[in-house]
Design a protein around this nucleic acid. Structure first.
Lengths: 244, 244
DNA sequence: CATAGTCAGATCCTATAGGAAGCGCCGGTC
DNA sequence: GACCGGCGCTTCCTATAGGATCTGACTATG
């Protein structure tokens, strides 16, 4: 049901039994494992896979209509991001929800990395990057923020995109990789950790402050604005005291 | 030879092939993919696999006497560390050597992360952690630093271990993960990027300064000592002007 | 009623087979 | 001598089979 995006193969599945199964994705310049990876990542990012859920290799293979091998490969990659965990002979499951301690650690790490990113991005960003960044903030403001999750999703996507863009605009592949390692967790926290709609108004203003500083070309102010944003996110989350 | 308990095919390979491959994993509570991962990582870390070398799936499988599937899984994990690169239908190869620009980016990232690690570690380290850290510095000093690579290896290992310990002692899983993502690259640079023996004397003193600050319990000084160390590593490397 | 033993199903893990694509070599042609 | 098409080899990629292990339920016994 969820592979209708790239899967050109349809119908004809009813088999002449002798033939080799699935004549397979014609030009398909992309490997099955990539497809599985993207599918699983999307499921994790938009909440279809809840924390703690088991991700059966065989089950996923059946669901996506591939053999277990590419699923295994995709899960091995995902494990390195911390979004799924593997136990030796028991299989994979989605990483559990954050404890308050995990959350504190995550924010500490963000405070170490993201202000630096903002500073570097400010020093090196070009016109195109500024446009992208502006669009992210614009999307953030225009995204519907209804109480239903489906409507809130676009807001969260724009939020994540803004931070990713900052990381990319550093021009430093390692800083970008460092944020990417965190970004998945950040997004998962946005989904399950209790970031509420009330957060949005404040957050938008804070993002605008970062954008303004970057546009002005003031690295110190950009770093400070980003640090301020992260600290306030932390304060608001703690104040809400998410008790799951 | 390493599948004493589970291997269906045993015996028949009595033709004592090449290496005395480590006969570990006795009770086999560890999966083959883990073994392959460790083996590949070791090969990357101590220079047996040079940058640019192709890592054939089938070849590695034959070499380690396993089937291609666990090799594939291990490589999928390694790819996420940046130490090997995969091209869609062409296979894996070891990531190429650093350009000077890559090196500058790596050092920039280390400067953003490691002083923070030193500060946090200083605030939270316990007696056992201090002992481990002290032993790393001790090994650093006592390691042979002969011109041959084999003798220099222990020194490099202790160096990497010191920084890893600092990262672990932060008590912050994300900072530790962030450094781990860099650590492999740092180690690869130590091997191939031109860190010479002349570096060792200065570096030892700088490590001792970090250790002293951490032992004293002065977070500011620890962070400053670590930043100083990284800057000097960068300066020395640039001065040596590694031209490969 | 509680606990231990047994069995069946599901799942993971590894091995092997076979199709598809890239790479190098070789002989033929201009 | 230079260029081009065919051929085989290697390698990757996916599918499938089978052994080993874990989980959960069911039954028998103290």
């Amino acid at each position: 049901m969820q592979n209708a995006s790239t899967g050109p193969r349809a119908g004809s599945s009813t088999d002449d039994q002798t033939g080799p199964r699935r004549t397979g994705r014609a030009v398909s310049r992309e490997v099955l494992a990539d497809h599985v990876y993207a599918e699983l990542l999307a499921s994790l990012m938009d909440g279809r896979l809840a924390p703690g859920a088991v991700v059966s290799i065989d089950g996923t293979a059946r669901e996506l209509d591939v053999s277990p091998t590419p699923v295994r490969e995709a899960l091995a990659r995902l494990e390195h991001t911390g979004m799924v965990r593997r136990v030796a002979l028991k299989g994979y499951r989605v990483a559990p929800v954050f404890t308050q301690e995990d959350f504190a650690e995550l924010m500490e790490a963000r405070l170490a990395i993201e202000p630096v990113n903002a500073r570097l991005a400010c020093e090196r960003i070009n016109q195109h990057g500024l446009a992208e960044l502006g669009k992210a903030v614009e999307d953030l403001k225009s995204a519907p923020r209804g109480p239903s999750f489906a409507e809130f999703k676009d807001y969260l996507e724009a939020d994540e995109r803004f931070h990713q863009l900052i990381a990319r605009q550093t021009g430093n592949q390692f800083m970008e990789a460092a944020y990417s390692a965190l970004g998945g967790q950040v997004q998962r926290f946005r989904l399950f950790g209790g970031v509420g709609i009330t957060d949005a108004e404040h957050a938008i203003a804070e993002h605008e402050a970062v954008l303004a500083a970057v546009t002005t070309g003031d690295p110190d102010k950009a770093a400070a604005a980003m640090a301020d944003h992260i600290r306030k996110v932390r304060s608001r989350a703690i104040a809400d005291a998410p008790e799951s």
